[in-house]
Simulated assay, not measured.
Amino acid sequence: MKTLKKIGSQVIVLTGATSGVGLITARKAAALGARLVLVARGEDALHKLAEELREHGTEVITVAADVGKHEDVAAVAQAAIDRFGGFDTWINNAGVTIFGRHDDVPLEDHRRLFETNYWGVVHGSLAAVAHLRQNGGAIINMGSESCDCPLPLQSAYVASQHAIKGFTDTLRLELEQEKAPVSVTLIKAAGMDTPIVTHAKNFLHVEPRQASPLYDPS
């Protein structure tokens, strides 16, 4: 395994960069001196964050992309290579949830969640491996504690988290077998105080809330 660079010497690709864990991660990585490729769907939020970080001297580019689309993610990797000559760490952080009983959530919404949560991780991981296999580095996939357990009223989300775990664990084993210089990490976060609930679709008759305790991601 190739030794990973210090964060201050890295180029980091970060999806879901404009809110929650992604926003905190972007600010902390910038404070440590990393160069950043920030990815989200909303251009305005990306540009606002980029300007904030540039005021403190961070080198940053933004790419508006839907991680559920393979071609969008491929464009992210190419943008990082064009600007910085490559990247050292790729963080698949973009994610959404849906609240509702299993038979109340429309299949279209269930599938769209998988496009972001599961396929976003797959697209990002494959793009990262294609570059890191030769150059070395790290892939970090953001999961949750529901990778390993059920979570009533969020069946689509939980299913996507189980899929993320299965894909990530298998990817790690395959890269270890070929002795590729790539670290693969799955973070199984507990409940955190982020906007994921306010951004979620809700098919319940009440406003959803995350169960306590909620951790401050900062």
Rank of each mutant, 00 (worst) to 15 (best):
Q78F: 01
A79S: 14
I81Y: 04
D82K: 14
R83M: 02
G85Q: 02
G85N: 07
G86V: 13
F87M: 11
T89F: 04
T89V: 15
I91R: 05
V96Y: 01
T97M: 15
I98T: 14
F99L: 05
F99V: 13
G100E: 04
G100W: 03
H102M: 15
D103A: 04
D103C: 06
D104E: 15
V105D: 01
V105Q: 02
V105M: 05
L107T: 08
L107E: 10
L107H: 04
E108S: 15
E108K: 13
D109L: 03
H110T: 13
R111N: 11
L113Y: 03
T116I: 15
Y118V: 09
W119C: 05
G124P: 08
L126H: 09
L126R: 12
A127H: 01
A127F: 02
H131L: 11
L132H: 03
R133Q: 12
Q134V: 00
N135M: 14
N135H: 15
G136W: 07
G136K: 03
G137M: 03
I140H: 03
N141F: 07
G143I: 09
S144V: 04
S144Y: 01
S144F: 05
S146L: 11
C147K: 00
C147Y: 02
D148K: 01
C149H: 02
P152F: 07
P152H: 09
P152C: 08
S155I: 10
A156E: 07
A156N: 03
Y157S: 09
A159E: 12
A159Y: 01
H162G: 09
A163S: 10
A163M: 08
I164P: 05
D169V: 12
T170S: 15
L171K: 02
R172V: 01
E176T: 01
E176N: 12
P181T: 05
V182H: 03
S183F: 08
S183R: 13
V184R: 01
V184C: 06
T185A: 02
T185V: 14
K188G: 01
A189N: 12
A189V: 04
A189T: 07
A190H: 11
G191T: 11
T194D: 13
I196H: 07
I196L: 10
V197H: 04
T198W: 00
H199G: 00
N202L: 11
F203K: 00
V206S: 11
E207I: 01
P208M: 12
Q210T: 12
